[in-house]
Amino acid sequence: MPERHVIVKAEVGLHARPAATFVQTAAKAALDITVAKAGGKPVNAKSILGVLSLDVRQGDTVVIRAEGEGAEELLDRLAEIASAP
């Protein structure tokens, strides 16, 4: 399954505005998308509560996975949001 490993650079981690932007972008796609902390249990990337409950801090690595038509482009966009400083 196509995936991206991304180091979260935002000081706020994957919380607050970065989390909202990430979830809003994921929710617009028709694909199933998951996000997990490296080695952790994946959650639905379209769930703000799921993403928040991962408690991703600055410097953590997350793994984003999606499969299907347009998955590569979508993963690139999500990786960009997750890695934005």
Binding site: Q24, N44, K46, L49, G50
Partner: peptide, 13 residues
């Protein structure tokens, strides 16, 4: 308020 709207629409919830 916008972030709260996202919570109310949460698919996991």
């Amino acid at each position: 308020l916008q972030a709260q709207a996202l919570m109310a629409r949460d698919p996991g919830l």
